[in-house]
Simulated assay, not measured.
Amino acid sequence: MTEQSQAAQEPKPQRRMRKIAMTSEEVDAFLAEQRTCRAATNGTNGPHATPLWYLWDAGALWFSTLSKSQRWTDLQADPRIAVVVDAGHDYAELRGVEIRGTVEVVGEVPRTGEPNETLERVERLMGERYFNGSYGHDGRHAWMRVNPDKITSWDFRKIPQG
């Protein structure tokens, strides 16, 4: 996909576990408060899962990755990805979101800071979230946007206790 392509259509509705699913507002709030996701890619030797910092903004998940990493190689060969963000310790506290979709590279590879309207907001928000206000370019990372095809959520706090 190209940077100019439209974001993915509205994700498919959740069909299972709807009684404990989060509302779209709850999904947005949950993804804004959590800090780490786990991203799974399809590699030539099978699945590859890694933790990442991320940004949830305007219905898309953003991350910056080393452009010479296994994740990058996997996603160049097959842009499909599954991402999970979850929280909770005890059974009745468990909640989370799974996002399935495709990645789209945004900006130059690797990112050196060329002006890019789309990335200005993303880098500002990422800097505020993880880097005390300033996001830097190291010439080794590149930006990817996950355009969700399906979002599944669960919140065990919605299960009646008794």
Rank of each mutant, 00 (worst) to 15 (best):
R15M: 02
M126Y: 15
A39Y: 07
I99M: 11
T23Y: 05
L75D: 10
C37P: 12
K158F: 08
R35P: 12
Y91E: 11
T36Q: 09
E10F: 03
D155M: 02
R18T: 14
F30I: 15
Q6F: 01
V146F: 02
Y54A: 01
R80T: 13
K19C: 06
A60N: 12
E114W: 11
E123Y: 10
N42T: 14
P13M: 04
C37F: 06
F63W: 07
S69P: 09
Q4W: 05
E3Y: 01
F30Q: 11
M17E: 15
S24L: 09
R145V: 00
E26H: 08
V84D: 14
L125A: 04
S67D: 14
D78V: 04
G139T: 04
R157G: 15
G59T: 12
S24G: 11
G43M: 00
Q161K: 13
M1E: 11
Q9E: 11
M144T: 03
G133K: 06
P110T: 03
L55P: 12
G127A: 02
E25A: 10
D155L: 03
I151D: 10
A7Q: 14
R95C: 08
G162C: 11
V27P: 15
R100N: 12
Y135Q: 05
Y130W: 02
F30M: 12
A40K: 06
M1S: 15
V84W: 05
E26K: 08
P79I: 01
S24C: 13
D74S: 00
N42A: 07
H141E: 10
A77K: 04
T118N: 03
K150T: 14
G96S: 03
P11W: 06
E104M: 08
R100P: 07
V97E: 06
W72T: 01
A77M: 02
P160N: 10
P79W: 00
S153Y: 14
A49E: 01
D57R: 12
P51R: 03
I151A: 14
A92C: 09
V122A: 02
R129Y: 07
S64F: 02
E120G: 05
N45T: 11
G162M: 13
L52V: 10
F63I: 05
V83S: 04
A142G: 13
D28S: 15
V97G: 12
T112A: 08
A21S: 15
G101R: 05
D57M: 05
V84K: 02
S134Q: 15
T152L: 12
M17W: 08
N45Q: 12
N147S: 13
R71A: 11
Q70R: 09
F30L: 15
S67L: 01
R121E: 09
K68I: 07
G139W: 00
L75C: 02
A82P: 04
G88N: 07
V84L: 10
W72M: 03
S67H: 09
Q4H: 09
T44P: 12
G113D: 06
R80N: 06
A40W: 01
I20V: 15
T2Q: 09
P148K: 09
M144V: 02
R124T: 13
R18N: 08
L61S: 07
L55D: 06
L61M: 13
P11G: 13
V106I: 07
